[in-house]
Design a binder for these strands. Structure first.
Lengths: 208, 208
DNA sequence: TTATATTCTGTCCAACGGTACAGTATTTTT
DNA sequence: AAAAATACTGTACCGTTGGACAGAATATAA
């Protein structure tokens, strides 16, 4: 994995090197021919075509973080919309840059806290009104299960098929079935549907 | 800085200890008297009063991360709105927990990539659309169906098997299947599980 | 009156789900 | 040290599910 810093004029090289000694610098016109999948690209918004470039880079299977001298909501949204995995102030502290790299390398997304709450702020009220039924005695059910069984139960509760659960937990489908059988027995349900309903705390019909 | 894990019953202690050997466990009623500013509090949503508790903890100058067994958009928004700095699956891998700790300790915000893109993906309008869609689940979906299809959908959503639905509606199992196929097609779901989740307004998928 | 929508039914088949046997390895408890 | 619990995998069986073809009767709309 290589860190690439894409700027118009090679600015701020010393900062990049302080954060990532092995980092490479590149320019808008030559970056695309040098990248390898999995690389991490830091793209400064002073590159006029940054949105299109970011999109192409993302399509090429690299991770893109946008650096802006003047961060703002709209630009952040645009960055994320292009598939960028981070949006940071260009002059963020070196430690922060390292942190961002860690996060995006681990499938996370980085945006600053104020920014996030700002971006989400508008829709809070509407959402809050809708956040009502939070009763969840699902906890008691889950506590009857072993740790692994809980993982399986929760995956199933999200609608996953056995094969998908197996992939998620990196075990065979057979093992998923074994866990599920144990789950059904412990919770006294006959199948995954009843399990969902039980964990969703809806009353369910056993039979008729 | 101390890591505190707040649960209802001290569940999953082994996981916390694997991630943070020095972590302390606490319960809803005694956590507030023990914390010091700068501490990191992991709060599980099975604690019924987690939103209010989170808010008070944030006000006390500690960092709060919300852990949920069944992550979903609304809950995530609520968590962030209370001032939480992270929102993670309770059963996230130990490595992920460590990662989250690093991020929030450095003034970052952690939400999963999928969630964030779901929330931010596209634009504000898209966000609002999505929100609206999530806000009125069953009614809106059901109105797309014919009367008979609705009956079938509702029966299935209560956990009934095809045979049971057939008995309830006094039709053959074959007809139930026919209705179901139409339902799946209209609502764009692949099976009865996803149908339940859709009608239960809980179509969040864990992991990838 | 032709067309469309709705409701109902049939057979066949591949894929999925759950169980009945099984077993091994590791850790925890007694 | 023995027993129990946990995690994992294998083969085989059978019922369920959903789709691929289908077709037929009735009501409503163009």
């Amino acid at each position: 994995m290589t860190n690439w810093f894409v700027t118009t004029n090679g600015d701020l090289k010393s900062r990049w090197e302080a954060a990532f000694p092995d980092a490479q610098s590149a320019q808008e016109h030559n970056i695309e021919s040098q990248i390898k999948p999995g690389d991490l690209i830091w793209l400064v918004t002073t590159v006029e075509t940054w949105p299109a470039l970011a999109r192409r880079l993302v399509a090429a299977n690299v991770t893109v973080v946008i650096l802006s001298y003047m961060p703002n909501d709209r630009e952040a949204l645009k960055a994320l919309d292009q598939g960028a995995r981070g949006y940071v102030h260009t002059l963020a502290a070196v430690d922060v840059l390292k942190q961002v790299a860690l996060v995006v390398a681990n499938q996370g997304v980085w945006v600053g806290q104020e920014l996030l709450s700002k971006v989400l702020g508008g829709s809070f009220k509407a959402l809050q009104q809708r956040t009502e039924q939070n009763a969840r005695p699902a906890a008691e059910c889950l506590s009857l299960l072993t740790e692994r069984e809980q993982s399986v139960a929760i995956a199933v509760t999200s609608g996953a098929a056995n094969k998908e659960v197996a992939r998620q937990l990196d075990i065979t489908e057979r093992t998923v079935k074994a866990h599920l059988s144990a789950i059904f027995k412990k919770l006294g349900v006959r199948d995954r549907l009843q399990l969902i309903l039980k964990l969703a705390n809806n009353d369910y019909r056993v039979n008729s």
